[in-house]
């Protein structure tokens, strides 16, 4: 019982002594450009409540501190031109298949597709050990919805290097394995019945892999990927683990009643909706959940 409250507490914003940053305050914060001067509690609450969409791009640059990277590196264009032909072909295959329904990326070789192609090419030459890997296309696409091409590139580089996300896309995907393992441990500890049910139904943790590889950006709820990236840039990878874990916990009643195929589909598709609730702190029935929990 204590456990469940503990987990939920992080997401239920009950404490109003830390007000959300207003848009004007965000503008000042961006001007100051000093993340360490912010009150961590206010930052958390502000991000959970959703940062102003019109400032989101700049806030991503601020949180990822990508402008420092940009200032100390070779010009972006040199990286765009330095991409290997073979990798370029690989990237090209995925361009038309990334957010094909979004206005920005709809038209063949249009503005959005060209920017995405350039950024992925530039990244592949910036980090030739990793090159290009599927999943990156969705992250870059989402960045482009809020940032100019060059800023999106450096923010992507920052995610990959500063946040060490490139380890996720390395040969043998070592970081992915690590994260999935942490998720498993966490789930086993916080919600053993869900863990046991997944295990007995033969559902591997890899079902959650794409959530890490794309920050939930392939999901139907378009807001989700953006909000996850907000949280990730602010609080790091643990946040994603917590989101998935809490969503699983909230849906455990449903999960326990599902069999293999349905369970797989649920974990791979429907869980996203619950994750959005978790991020937004829309967990209002805490007491109800606790009651259910005692009944189990």
């Amino acid at each position: 019982m204590a456990d469940i409250c503990q987990i939920l507490e992080e997401y239920v914003i009950l404490d109003h002594q830390f007000p959300v940053f207003s848009k004007n305050e965000w503008v000042t914060i961006l001007k100051d450009n000093d993340i360490f001067r912010l009150c961590p509690n206010r930052l958390r609450i502000s991000v959970c409540n959703g940062i102003p969409s019109s400032l989101r791009g700049d806030i991503w640059v601020f949180l990822s501190r990508s402008s420092h990277l940009q200032a100390s590196s070779k010009p972006y264009q040199e990286y765009v031109n330095g991409c290997d032909d073979c990798v370029e072909k690989m990237i090209l295959k995925d361009i038309g298949r990334t957010f094909p329904h979004e206005l920005l990326f709809k038209s063949f070789c249009g503005f959005g597709q060209t920017c995405m192609f350039n950024i992925l090419k530039a990244y592949a030459s910036y980090d030739s050990d990793i090159g290009y890997c599927q999943g990156m296309n969705f992250i870059v696409g989402t960045l482009l919805m809020y940032l100019s091409e060059e800023k999106a590139f450096w923010t992507f580089v920052s995610i990959m290097f500063e946040k060490n996300w490139r380890e996720l896309f390395k040969e043998e995907t070592p970081k992915l394995t690590k994260l999935l393992h942490s998720l498993k441990i966490k789930l086993k500890e916080k919600c053993p019945e869900v863990y046991n049910h997944l295990k007995s139904e033969g559902i591997e943790m890899t079902v959650f892999a794409k959530y890490f590889l794309t920050f939930f950006m392939c999901e139907q709820e378009k807001e989700l990927g953006v909000r996850v990236l907000d949280s990730f840039l602010c609080f790091g990878e643990n946040e994603i683990l917590e989101i998935i874990n809490t969503a699983l916990l909230l849906e455990r009643k449903k999960i326990l009643g599902l069999k293999y195929e349905e369970l797989f589909m649920f974990c791979a598709k429907e869980l996203g909706k619950r994750c959005l609730d978790v991020i937004k702190g829309n967990i209002i029935h805490v007491n109800e959940i606790d009651d259910d929990y005692t009944m189990l």
Partner: peptide, 9 residues
């Protein structure tokens, strides 16, 4: 077709 990151069923 949107590119598959994990797997579909």
């Amino acid at each position: 077709e949107i590119s598959t990151v994990n797997a579909n069923y």
